[in-house]
Design a protein around this nucleic acid. Sequence first.
DNA 1: AAGTGGTCTAGACCACTAT
DNA 2: TAGTGGTCTAGACCACTTG
Lengths: 247, 247
Amino acid sequence: MDMQSLSGKPDGRLPRYQQLRDDLVRRIAEGEWSPEKAIATEAELSQFYNVSTGTLRKAIDLLVADGVLTRTQGKGTFVRRPRFDSSLFRFFRFKSVDGKPVRPTAKVLRREVVKPNETIRSTLQMKATEKTLHLSRVRMIEGEAVLSEEIWLPRSRFEGLATLPLGDFEDLLYPLYERLCRQIVASATEILNVEKATEADAALLRIEVGSPVILVQRVASDFAGTPIEWRTTRGAAEAFQYQVDIR
Amino acid sequence: MDMQSLSGKPDGRLPRYQQLRDDLVRRIAEGEWSPEKAIATEAELSQFYNVSTGTLRKAIDLLVADGVLTRTQGKGTFVRRPRFDSSLFRFFRFKSVDGKPVRPTAKVLRREVVKPNETIRSTLQMKATEKTLHLSRVRMIEGEAVLSEEIWLPRSRFEGLATLPLGDFEDLLYPLYERLCRQIVASATEILNVEKATEADAALLRIEVGSPVILVQRVASDFAGTPIEWRTTRGAAEAFQYQVDIR
DNA sequence: AAGTGGTCTAGACCACTAT
DNA sequence: TAGTGGTCTAGACCACTTG
């Protein structure tokens, strides 16, 4: 197979390893390889694309650096599920009574089908007529509310969640998206702001009105880069500490 | 030259490209190549280390990914000065009256030689008897204070700053460190917390007592990885917005 | 033992920069 | 035109995993 024929646009001027990467991403986005599944071997791929192993490995190196693939010697190369290691939520330092870090549980308080506001509609690249599934959720440590979340999903992709009894929602939503709606979150962008607690925030999170609150807005996308979830989360800033390394 | 003889510990079991990277870092840390200066060419280095160009390039690729080097086709490979692109300060959205983003000016309010507290002393890896140079600084936009900074430096490395008239301090300190003290900042770590404004914060930043304040604590290090500066910065959280990408 | 990715070679030719 | 990094080849051998 010739490289020129791989993509819609020839991109003949791009290096072959970049064309290779783009085509591998396309095949992942189209579902040819699924998360946790091995993709074709180096030998197969280099033969298929008619490039040397060095060139093929350079393409795969890029995808590994991007977090799309992982390689394990002796086993194979795998499509990687994002682990949200860099999510801002990791920097809420929740501790239980005994001081050990714990993962909050979750409870869905409300679900409704609504017309999204213009910000959400355009971010999710939805048509003007399409509606969203809106979830209100609270996350708790030992019964105490620590985070309040609002989630908007394009209705058409998430029919499977429209009828699920609220009690059947699990602590983690993304496995649910995958199982019931075949929507796989492959990446996300988060934006952090600091606000003053409103009365509603204060009542839920048991903090003072006006005290600092962290607001995280997240847009999550699938492997094709299409946004599929908009989410806002609020929590007491007191529990928050973030670290960054500079080079 | 044989690879085994390059480092104190043979590290014979590490791949050659990692040994190569370590030795290149050592040569940079020892000042053989300076920021903005080209290092030896690929041909010279691969001959010197007796490895193929592919292996040498893999070592250099690692350093480029780490932000230590940059390569420019046709020109050479250069030691990179950190540009603090990922610094949390970039996420204070200061705007002047006309709305354009601006870089704050700086004024040193106080300089003193003090015994550091235990946290600072151990972070800067200083002996129990050694003292620090402590600077109090305010950063301003159009005359209005927007950030307040406290800086601690190991006295022995920064003698050159001890006698400089306060008015001669420039807006950017790191070029000053380099010129007057031959201390080059090669990397840094920053930690973000949110606090409530104290009365001192409130008076300086012209915000309400108790309103949210961003606290950034930075430890800056040289190419050898030795910490050379401890800094805390406070600013109104209102002006702060941070973004992170997840894969 | 067979198959996978990990490391490494010894070059070639191309694109870009400086002189 | 000479010198630099950028791309790419066509393999080899090694280390690890699995049957």
